[in-house]
Amino acid sequence: MIITILSAIALLILAFAYTVTLEGIARKIEARIHRRCGPPFWQNFIDIFKSLTKHSISHGFIFDFGVLMALGGTIATVLFIPAGNLVVFPGLDNVFVIIYLLAIGLLGMAMSAVGSGNPNASIGIGRALTQMLGYELPFMIVLLGVFFHFRTSSLSELAVLQNSGGTYNVLIMPIGAVVGFVSLMGMLGKKPFDTFIAPAEIASGPLVEYSGKYLGLLMTQHAFGTFIEIGLFVNLFLGGGKTIWEFLLKFFLVYFLAVIISSIMPRFRVEQAVKFYWKWPLILSFIQVVIVVFIMGRRV
């Protein structure tokens, strides 16, 4: 019990510190690609804490409640992500639970944003939900193949099985891993799939009315969300890690790749994004899962 609580606290702090640092590094990387100098890597910490010190406005009960629900749901989800050998709830970290628990955060965010009464927020949420229907489908279908193959949907067990089997899933199911990565880009809201934020067009969409601490909380939520999404990918396809350091390294590599790709991309319109996801990633995911189910079979 005590160990669970301690590891939960450790995981939360790790997730926050590491992801926010990486976000800062990402800004730096992006700046370097633009041939700029870029902000210091701790810039995102400053941004978050500054936001928390500012004054803010609220648009009523649901505006507050939704933000709390978003952050609460996301924090809850983080606790189910195994980080190397730091596993808070071994065996109970079912991927379906993680994906649906993450949806609480999304729903809270959506409610709060629309509760602000700003149409830009509604448009942004509409786009975000539409895009979600795009990227989740191929991802979930690939997951079906993974679970079928390994006979488990527990994230930590999947990582252990990959490590003990000697090969990572990215080698066993390369097509699936590619699809998973493309879906991950959508989940992270990285370009070209960031149409729901679109600052110049719909004034940053869902975030349009958030000020001060609300913005700070949502930035924290975003950091946790990033940790969950990349953590899922690392554990599913790259075997998690035997130690926490291995996990963090893989995490960094995946995030780095995503940032590099996103910084040279233009932006899809939302229906283009959905069409894209329903074309190549979906076809590839079906190919992958058919290979897994009908040719490879279950892992012995």
Partner: peptide
Amino acid sequence: ARFDMERFGIGPMATPRQ
């Protein structure tokens, strides 16, 4: 790239709220 305001942590934001 030439002057890079972002290195001071200055960046554009979309709405007055933020």
